[in-house]
């Protein structure tokens, strides 16, 4: 097969009347990404289930095998077995992609071509025009009167967030505006989550895992020692987080 193609390309017969025409042709192929190191029974069972569920989807469609997650198919025997089994299921396997470890001769022997270009799907493009400036949304502050537990996440989408109680390690506070914690802050606090650089964080005892204002953050390791376990005011100045002990 490859010989014939080589001849037509490099050694064309001197014909006077064009016996062929070259035209571009795009086709859509299904890419079957192999996510397992060996095509075992589970693999085939799952595949059969999928085929059974959507039979029309696969019938007659050309299929490309993607080995990006399965470098183990460099072994020719395993590759041969896989392609054979897929073809027996009437999948029109014609090419491979991301097949780094697989030798060219093995592919040729199986009648497969290695695809180097092409993406899984066209990237979604954002064609929407620049959004008009939204009218400022009404401020909605939030007050929490109980301790915020590990794993809880409290969001004040449009205003300040005040917690009267402790914020445990593993808890998260997010606010568009300021964050006040009347208790120890051991979790994460993110003020100015929509980019408000004038947001502040106040807490009675600073021991946070992370504090952030308008996306600029400090982790626990970077907290200033002077502010640790102290009543602290955190704010942005010259694009840097400042910590000021206030009591």
């Amino acid at each position: 097969m490859s010989d014939r193609y080589a001849r037509t390309r490099h050694d064309p017969s001197p014909a006077t009347v064009a016996a062929f025409q070259v035209r571009g042709r795009f086709l859509t192929a299904l890419a079957l990404r192999i996510d397992t190191e060996s095509a075992d029974d589970t693999f085939y069972a799952q595949l059969d289930e999928q085929l059974l569920r959507t039979p029309q989807f696969f019938s007659g469609a050309p299929v490309v095998l993607d080995f990006i997650n399965a470098p183990g198919f460099g072994d020719p025997d395993r590759m041969r077995e896989l392609v054979g089994n897929l073809r027996r299921r009437e999948l029109q396997v014609f090419g491979v992609q991301n097949a780094v470890g697989i030798e060219e001769t093995v592919l040729q022997g199986l009648g497969l071509i290695a695809l180097t270009a092409g993406r899984d799907a066209p990237l979604p493009r954002d064609n929407s025009p620049v959004r008009p400036v939204e009218a400022p949304r009404p401020v909605q502050n939030k007050v929490i009167r109980s301790p915020v537990r590990s794993g809880q996440m409290i969001v004040a989408e449009q205003g300040d967030l005040t917690v009267i109680g402790s914020v445990a390690s593993g808890a998260e506070l997010v606010a568009a505006g300021n964050i006040h914690v009347y208790g120890p802050l051991r979790g994460r606090a993110m003020a100015g989550c929509h980019g408000d650089e004038s947001a502040h964080i106040f807490c009675q005892s600073l021991n946070a895992e992370l504090v952030a204002i308008a996306g600029l953050y400090h982790t626990s390791e970077m907290l200033e020692d002077a502010a640790r376990q102290r009543c602290t005011h955190i704010y942005l100045e010259d694009e840097k987080l400042r910590m000021e002990v206030i009591a």
Partner: peptide, 13 residues
């Protein structure tokens, strides 16, 4: 202690 805190959160929610 942290896991207990998480559980306390679940108990209250």
């Amino acid at each position: 202690v942290r896991d207990s805190d998480r559980v306390l959160g679940l108990l209250s929610s």
